[in-house]
C-alpha cells in the first residue's frame, strides 16, 4: 500500500480591519455552522459561547474625533499555542496537516486550564447543556458534533469544511484540496470581504501575500505565540491596539 502522506499546510486568515464594520455576520454564520446554541436567559458576555466574537475598540479620543475599530477574534490558531501544554487530557493538539489547533470536547474534562492559558480569550466553556427551541434541532449542521455541559470548545477554522473538501478531492483521486472548496463560514459570510483565507505555506496564496504586507500584524505578538490569524489596517492607532488586550478592555468597559 502506498503511503498516505499528505502535504502539510498552514491555514491562516488575514482580517482587514479597515473593511470590517462590525455587522456581526461572521459571528452569526459561525454559530449556525458550528451548532453553537443560543444563550440561556442568564448568560452574559462572560458565560456565552462565541467562537467568533467581534470586539469594538476605539481610538480613545473625544467625540467627534472618536473612531471605532472592530476586531473579529476567534481562536488565533497559534504556532506555539499556550493551551496545548497545559491540557491534562491531550484534548488539544496542533494538526500537522492544517496547522489548526484542535479541541476535542469529548476528551475534555472541563478543568479550563486552557482557557486560563489562552491570552486571546478565544476558548469557551459550556456552563450548561446546549438547548435549542423545540424543532430547531432539525436545523443543526450534521457535519459538526454537538457539545455537552462541562467541556471547552472553540473555533477550528470550520474543520468539517476542510474534511469535506479533502473527501471531495480524494473522490477525484487528488491528495490536495482545491482552495475554493475550503472556506470557513465566517469568511464566506463577510459582506465586506474583509477576511482573506488560505494556506500560508503557499506563496501564491492571497493570505501569504497579505500576511507579509507592511500594515499586517498579529495580536499580542510579544508573547511569541505566533498566531495564524493576522489583522491589517492602514490606521496607525489601530495597529497600536495589537498589543493591548482588546477582549479584557471591552469586558471591563461593559461589566464595570
Amino acid at each position: 500500500m502506498e503511503s498516505a502522506e499528505t502535504t502539510r499546510a498552514r491555514f491562516a486568515m488575514v482580517i482587514d480591519l479597515d473593511r470590517c464594520n462590525g455587522c456581526g455576520a461572521c459571528a452569526t454564520a459561525c454559530a449556525v455552522e458550528n451548532n453553537v446554541p443560543p444563550a440561556r436567559p442568564s448568560a452574559n458576555e462572560r458565560t456565552g459561547l462565541t467562537w467568533q466574537r467581534v470586539y469594538r475598540a476605539s481610538n480613545g479620543r473625544q467625540f467627534p474625533e472618536n473612531r471605532s475599530v472592530y476586531f473579529p477574534v476567534s481562536c488565533q490558531q497559534c504556532e506555539h499555542p499556550p493551551c496545548v501544554s497545559v491540557c491534562p487530557q491531550n484534548a488539544v493538539d496542533v494538526s500537522p496537516e492544517t496547522g489548526v489547533v484542535s479541541q476535542i470536547p469529548v476528551r475534555c474534562l472541563g478543568c479550563r486550564y486552557c482557557m486560563t492559558a489562552c491570552p486571546y480569550h478565544a476558548r469557551y466553556f459550556n456552563w450548561f447543556d446546549p438547548k435549542w427551541p423545540d424543532g430547531m434541532e432539525t436545523t443543526l449542521n450534521p457535519d459538526v458534533s454537538v457539545r455537552m455541559r462541562g467541556v471547552v470548545e472553540k473555533c477550528n477554522f470550520c474543520h468539517s469544511r476542510w474534511q469535506a473538501a479533502k473527501a471531495k478531492a480524494a473522490a477525484a483521486g487528488k491528495r490536495d484540496l482545491d482552495p475554493a472548496d475550503y472556506v470557513p463560514a465566517c469568511v464566506e459570510a463577510c459582506p465586506e470581504k474583509a477576511i482573506v483565507f488560505g494556506n500560508l505555506d503557499d506563496p501564491r496564496s492571497g493570505v501569504a501575500k497579505s500576511a507579509k504586507s507592511a500594515n499586517a500584524f498579529r495580536l499580542l505578538e510579544k508573547l511569541g505565540t505566533e498566531p495564524k490569524v493576522f489583522y491589517r489596517s492602514d490606521r496607525a492607532w489601530v495597529r497600536r491596539l495589537a498589543d493591548a488586550d482588546v477582549a479584557v478592555q471591552e469586558k471591563e468597559a461593559t461589566r464595570g
Binding site: 503511503s3 498516505a4 488539544v92 493538539d93 500537522p96 496537516e97 489548526v100
Partner: peptide, 9 residues
C-alpha cells in the same frame, strides 16, 4: 502507514 494525524483528523 505513516499517516500524519491529529485529533481533528
Amino acid at each position: 502507514h505513516g499517516v500524519r494525524q491529529s485529533c481533528l483528523t
